[in-house]
């Protein structure tokens, strides 16, 4: 069944989808007001991976994004920077230079993103290129076709190989949950990725619908929690795609807090993969400061 090394038996707890949806809905009933909201909105900003992953990406687009990452909204004092800028491997060097000194990480997708349909050699070369250009973080995709065939050892080995190729860079493993078909499979893929050495698990490429949802994220958070309870080791979580509103992002943070605890409320352990979320958060912060509801035209789009 597997072509490389030891056969592992992968089994994950069953997931009841209706129960997960109910639990996820419960987080959205939390009311986040005043000080908690201010603190939460700041956290959301600091956890954003500002992302551009388009075929038509240019140096100009990447430069603009890097500028935005460091100057979210200069008319508001004391805003944090975003956590990272996420680009294709060929823009890593540029992003690295543009963000020099800012503390903002550069993340790069790799491994034949977004489909992952290529040979291991090419995927590893992809990773090595991004790493050598200075990527702090690598966002890989798992081989969903092999996963659906039941080649769990293949999927595991591939993640482990990519992890080895990452060196000092942190590895985010994209499950592409929208292609997995059920929450049971999401849980299994999460467990495989964590066991294979992923530093983060991530929902989606952003190219497939549905992308991140609260139920999917909850299942992945529970996998992280179970791993932590068994081993004491922390793994990060990154929902990506579909989170564009501040209120929803705050509910994600409630979910992280109640599932994993306050230790995960840190850009080191939790990220939002999003492009338009930052502006909505900024509008909410401005509203809190001024008392007036904001309009999109007062916030720069990059």
């Amino acid at each position: 069944m597997n072509q490389s090394g030891t056969a592992r038996v992968f089994s994950s707890p069953a997931i009841d989808q209706v129960g997960v949806v109910e639990r996820a809905k419960r987080f959205t009933a939390r009311s986040i007001k005043s000080q908690a909201k201010r603190q939460g909105l700041g956290m959301v900003l600091s956890m954003i991976d500002l992302t551009t992953l388009e075929g038509m990406d240019t140096e100009g687009k990447v430069k603009q994004l890097c500028y935005k990452a460091q100057h979210l909204h200069d008319s508001i004092d004391g805003l944090p920077n975003v956590a990272a800028v996420c680009v294709y491997p060929n823009f890593v060097g540029l992003a690295k230079r543009s963000l020099a000194g800012s503390g903002i990480k550069v993340a790069s997708v790799a491994t034949a993103f977004p489909s992952g349909n290529s040979s291991l050699e090419i995927k590893l070369a992809d990773v090595s290129m991004a790493v050598s250009e200075g990527a702090d973080e690598i966002d890989m995709v798992i081989s969903r076709g092999r996963f659906h065939r039941g080649d769990y050892n293949f999927v595991f080995d591939e993640i482990a190989a990519v992890k080895a190729a990452c060196g000092e860079s942190r590895l985010k493993t994209i499950l592409e949950t929208g292609e997995l078909g059920s929450l049971d499979k999401v849980r299994l893929a999460s467990d495989i990725a964590i066991a294979a050495g992923a530093d983060f698990i991530k929902t989606s490429t952003g190219k497939i619908q549905p992308a991140a949802t609260m139920p999917v994220t909850l299942v992945m958070l529970e996998a992280i929690r179970d791993h932590f309870q068994k081993t004491g080791l922390m793994v990060g979580m990154k929902p990506a795609g579909g989170i564009s509103k501040a209120k929803l992002a705050l509910h994600y943070l409630i979910m992280v807090k109640e599932t994993l605890g306050d230790d995960w409320l840190d850009p080191k352990w939790f990220r939002f993969g999003a492009s338009s979320l930052a502006n909505d958060v900024l509008m909410q912060i401005a509203k809190q400061q001024t008392g007036a509801y904001q309009a999109a035209n007062y916030f720069a789009i990059d």
Partner: peptide, 13 residues
């Protein structure tokens, strides 16, 4: 008993 909400029009998860 719960009824899983996944249909041909896409998953609700």
């Amino acid at each position: 008993h719960p009824i899983e909400q996944i249909s041909e029009s896409g998953a609700a998860y």
